[in-house]
């Protein structure tokens, strides 16, 4: 029989330092994050809610309660309705495009070929560009007179008298309602595609080689493997990529602000840009806040979904 050393009697134990106590150290470590969230998220959100329920303007900063009048006024406004529709249109359409293209790109990039690293780097580039710079670049590319895209179209005889896009010599990308909307949509796609591709690429590489081999041996061809094995296994990660893309596109005002300023005739206006024009440039802080509050329910929904998914990956 071996013996075990006895625990020393309580009076000889040394006292713990203050910072060794979890009850003290825990709250202390959390404090900066809590202060940060209250000061930079909680306070502005509270202020926006207060503004949206008041009649505050840049000229008169008194917060007089007006109930939901701002929301009613805003909802009746034709520009708001366009902005609401555009916000959803740009977000949903760009994410459908992004998902399709990101799947194809990820599949291509996951295979082995020469120069793979260079291509991956190039595809990631738009993500690393500041969004305002990217939008300015596109503004030049889509210039109504000097657009290089128009030049290329003219060179290959798609634009000009007697061609499909003719008869004028320019497309006027940002001056026609449908082309301007298409431009905004494509820039959002261009911008969020890299992140989605990288996320899906990570998801694809996470599928075990054995599972792919098994599908090969089991006689599944490319399409059957894609539809029954790869896409189902990628679904959770696709959801993550889509939620990220949705948040970025839904809340973005830079692209519209730089490219079209919401024009022509508010046809590319989105909630974020309209809230800015109305609230900051127009000086009606209350209505601007009310417009911005329409983003809130969707963002809450997305946040709930993200948290739920995060919890699911924690538990499995």
């Amino acid at each position: 029989m071996s013996t075990i050393a006895a625990t020393p009697p309580p009076e000889t134990r040394e006292r713990r330092y203050l910072l060794d106590r979890e009850g003290v150290l825990g709250p202390l470590m959390l404090l900066p994050a809590v202060v940060y969230i209250i000061a930079l998220v909680g306070f502005p959100l509270g202020l926006a809610i207060a503004y949206s329920l008041s009649d505050v303007t840049i000229g008169d900063q008194g917060l007089d309660w007006v109930g939901f009048r701002n929301f009613v006024d805003v909802a009746k406004n034709g520009t708001f309705q366009k902005a609401l529709r555009n916000t959803f249109l740009f977000t949903l359409a760009s994410q459908v495009l992004v998902l399709t293209l990101a799947n194809i790109l990820a599949l291509v990039l996951s295979s082995d070929f020469k120069g793979k690293r260079l291509v991956r780097f190039l595809i990631l580039l738009p993500w690393t560009t500041p969004i305002a710079l990217g939008a300015i670049g596109w503004l030049w590319l889509l210039d109504s007179v000097y657009s290089p895209i128009d030049w290329v179209l003219r060179q290959v005889n798609l634009l000009g008298p007697g061609t499909i896009f003719g008869p004028r010599g320019n497309m006027y990308w940002t001056a026609k309602a449908d082309l301007a909307q298409l431009s905004v949509l494509l820039i959002h796609t261009w911008r969020t595609l890299p992140l989605a591709t990288v996320i899906l690429l990570a998801g694809l590489t996470a599928i075990p080689q054995d599972v792919k081999d098994a599908a090969n041996v089991d006689g599944a061809g490319f399409w059957r493997q894609l539809i029954y094995i790869r896409i189902p296994l990628l679904l959770p990660i696709m959801a993550v990529a889509t939620l990220f893309g949705m948040v970025f596109t839904f809340t973005d005002m830079t692209v519209v602000y730089v490219l079209t300023r919401g024009g022509p005739i508010d046809n590319t206006q989105v909630l974020a840009s309209w809230a800015y024009f109305k609230g900051i440039e127009g000086g009606n802080l209350a209505q601007g806040a009310a417009i911005a509050m329409f983003l809130f329910p969707v963002l809450v929904g997305v946040a709930v979904l993200m948290l739920r998914m995060a919890r699911r990956t924690e538990t499995t």
Partner: peptide, 14 residues
């Protein structure tokens, strides 16, 4: 593999 009339069991079962 699919044309070889074989079946395979993997270490991870896959």
């Amino acid at each position: 593999p699919r044309a070889r009339q074989i079946a395979m069991v993997f270490q991870s079962y896959a």
